[in-house]
């Protein structure tokens, strides 16, 4: 199988703290991969390293054959990594539709001048963007809320909108940072279905951080467990979750 993401020996220190050390992972195309670990293990730091928020001290990141180590966030977004955030980060004062259209920014372009003078290219591209954005909203069942301000959406829909916006950038790899945080079991179940649907519908490779063991064991084929910035266990989900070390470190004795 072709690899979508290959991470070798990734590491970063903040002062004297080695936040992530010798992190390796290989994710195949179309795979649903989980990254778990106790609080403060360095999971989100790994995401920030992958998306260029932090520059790694060591190691390299290869996305679909392209080395993206140490590149800027914008370049990494263009290379094809999109993400959501643990604490939802929407454009609150923009409508639901505009949030998704902002995600389409780099795929549909016209000049500033044609935007101000309302030239034909403005009308054409805006129509394309509207259509594409509405398609995406429909997929995420948000089309009836297109005109609503993002901040007025209920929590679950905000989570979905964040994923829709990430998908608008047409990524190769989607990073989900605790998508089920703050959700009840029903919502989590819906979310699981939706993540699977995104994987199948868009043929997407997904790497997700999660605390909810039900969600992780339900949808992830493979897992990495992070503890104190280092990989504790890695492999098929059922094997990892039965690993005594993992149970001790993370799930409790």
């Amino acid at each position: 199988m072709a690899l979508m993401l290959e991470v070798n020996n990734l590491g970063i220190s903040f002062g004297g703290l080695r936040a992530v050390n010798d992190f390796n992972v290989s994710i195949e195309k179309g795979q649903l991969y989980g990254l778990i670990g106790p609080n403060g293990a360095g999971k989100t730091t790994v995401f920030n390293l992958l998306t260029g928020v932090y520059k790694p001290d060591t190691g390299n990141v290869v996305l679909d054959g392209q080395d993206i180590t140490g590149k800027k966030t914008i370049e990494i977004s263009k290379a094809g990594i999109a993400r959501t955030f643990q604490n939802i980060r929407l454009f609150k004062e923009l409508s639901v539709l505009d949030n998704v259209k902002a995600g389409l920014h780099n795929h549909h372009a016209y000049s500033t001048i044609s935007g101000i003078l309302r030239l034909p290219s403005y009308r054409r591209v805006e129509r394309e963007m509207d259509e594409r954005a509405m398609e995406l909203l429909k997929v995420f069942d948000l089309d009836s809320e297109a005109g609503t301000l993002a901040s007025n959406l209920p929590y679950g829909k905000q989570r979905r909108l964040e994923i829709a916006r990430a998908m608008a950038t047409d990524p190769k790899l989607l990073l989900l940072d605790e998508p089920a945080a703050g959700m009840n079991p029903n919502e989590t179940q819906e979310l699981m279905d939706m993540i699977r649907f995104v994987r199948d519908h868009f043929d997407m490779t997904i790497l997700l951080i999660e605390h909810d063991m039900k969600l992780v064991s339900g949808i992830c084929v493979e897992l990495s467990v992070l503890n104190f910035g280092e990989i504790l266990a890695q492999g098929a989900t059922s094997d990892v979750l039965n690993d005594p070390q993992v149970i001790t470190a993370y799930l409790g004795e």
């Binding site: 998306t51 928020v53 966030t73 914008i74 977004s77 263009k78 999109a82 993400r83 955030f85 980060r89 929407l90 454009f91 902002a102 995600g103 920014h105 780099n106 916006r165 990430a166 608008a168 950038t169």
Partner: peptide
């Protein structure tokens, strides 16, 4: 941060 993550300069 979110704007940067979707590739806005």
């Amino acid at each position: 941060i979110a704007a940067e993550s979707i590739g806005i300069n």
